[in-house]
């Protein structure tokens, strides 16, 4: 939960796992822990209000994610927010999680103005979105199989680094030569803006089987670096081609995978060589957070219409 003042002053931002890491519920998938969410939600709210130094009655409006996601986890947030809104007599805005990832950029770059091409890359999503103006989106490309973050996590698993292990792959890749192994770039030359990472994952699997008896730490670093290079190549090629096709003046990154330094550096170089602006959030705003949800709610509030309290959770909500 987060407290946002105006359009850009973040007074607090609390992630539930920060409070509960010493009392894990036993599983590995936070989204499945609806009961734990229900138990924590009050403490997280108190934490967010305390850190912001305000009282409950100081809130003017509430934003809450209503999709996409797992119904049980979404319901905990939506029901709590509605109860709070009803009690306080303030409006409650349903927020699309994917749209919120885009708005994460606006928190730190308040002058960011469309049209731009946005690449949302996370564990569950890989989307290229043409943003004509805030609130008007056209999905121009998406993954046909695995999401970019999922590819990182599954490669980590194949390499025996555990799951999820995307950040570990990035760390090991720093020591390796990204041109050591020519992994495939699926869909790289396909005329569509779609992505595919499943074939790349399979190529890694066979490489690892081949190398396993003498998988030295040098070789491991080469596999990680070459894999990361293949993903980065594909993401950059597709994104900048789409930016040109749709006449974007800027490219923005969003989602957990946009924390990846290698991807950020490549996008910076490509953007600079084309005279395009490039914007991405700071790492804590790339991963899922409430500040971006609050910022999105502020945008919808400024557009005028008061929301009705009878909105539902939409697990398969798209942009």
């Amino acid at each position: 939960m987060a407290v946002l003042e105006g359009t850009g002053t973040l007074r607090s931002s609390i992630i539930s796992s920060q409070l509960t890491q010493h009392a894990p519920y036993g599983g590995v998938v936070p989204e499945l822990a609806s009961r734990a969410h229900l138990e924590n939600v009050g403490a997280v709210l108190d934490g967010a209000l305390n850190e912001a130094g305000i009282a409950l009655a100081d809130l003017d409006r509430i934003g809450v994610t209503n999709g996409p996601g797992l119904a049980g986890a979404l319901l905990v947030g939506v029901c709590y927010a509605k109860g709070l809104g009803l009690g306080l007599g303030v409006p409650v805005y349903p927020v699309n999680h994917l749209e919120a990832h885009l708005f994460a950029n606006l928190l730190e770059h308040p002058d960011l103005a469309p049209p731009f091409m946005a690449l949302i890359i996370s564990g569950g999503h890989t989307l290229l979105v043409s943003v004509e103006k805030w609130g008007t989106y056209r999905v121009v490309g998406r993954t046909r199989d695995d999401a970019a973050g999922e590819a990182f996590d599954k490669v980590a698993k194949l390499l025996g680094l555990g799951y999820p292990g995307g950040p570990l792959v990035e760390q090991l890749a720093r020591e390796g030569d990204p041109r050591a192994i020519a992994f495939p770039r699926p869909m790289r030359n396909d005329p569509s803006s779609d992505f595919s990472f499943s074939g790349l994952k399979t190529a890694i699997m066979h490489q690892v089987k081949h190398d396993w008896p003498q998988l030295t730490s040098k070789r491991l670093a080469e596999v990680c670096a070459s894999f990361q290079e293949a993903v980065t190549d594909t993401l950059a090629a597709k994104t900048f081609a789409a930016a040109e096709e749709w006449g974007a003046s800027a490219v923005i990154l969003a989602g957990g995978v946009s924390r990846n330094e290698h991807i950020r550096r490549r996008f910076e170089r490509e953007a600079a060589s084309r005279g395009l602006a490039l914007v991405f959030p700071s790492p804590q705003l790339c991963t899922d957070n409430a500040a971006m949800v609050a910022r999105t709610a502020v945008f919808h509030a400024a557009r005028g219409a008061l929301p009705s309290l009878d909105f539902a959770v939409v697990p398969s909500l798209g942009l």
């Binding site: 590995v28 797992l70 569950g124 973050g149």
Partner: peptide, 29 residues
């Protein structure tokens, strides 16, 4: 829209001739 891996999203629902639910229990302990 083509079905994609639900490893991270766990469950996705699509409308077709029949409703299609696509689950992935990879991360389920």
């Amino acid at each position: 829209d083509p079905l994609t891996s639900p490893t991270f999203t766990l469950l996705s629902e699509s409308a077709g001739r029949l409703p299609v639910f696509h689950l992935d229990l990879y991360r389920v302990a």
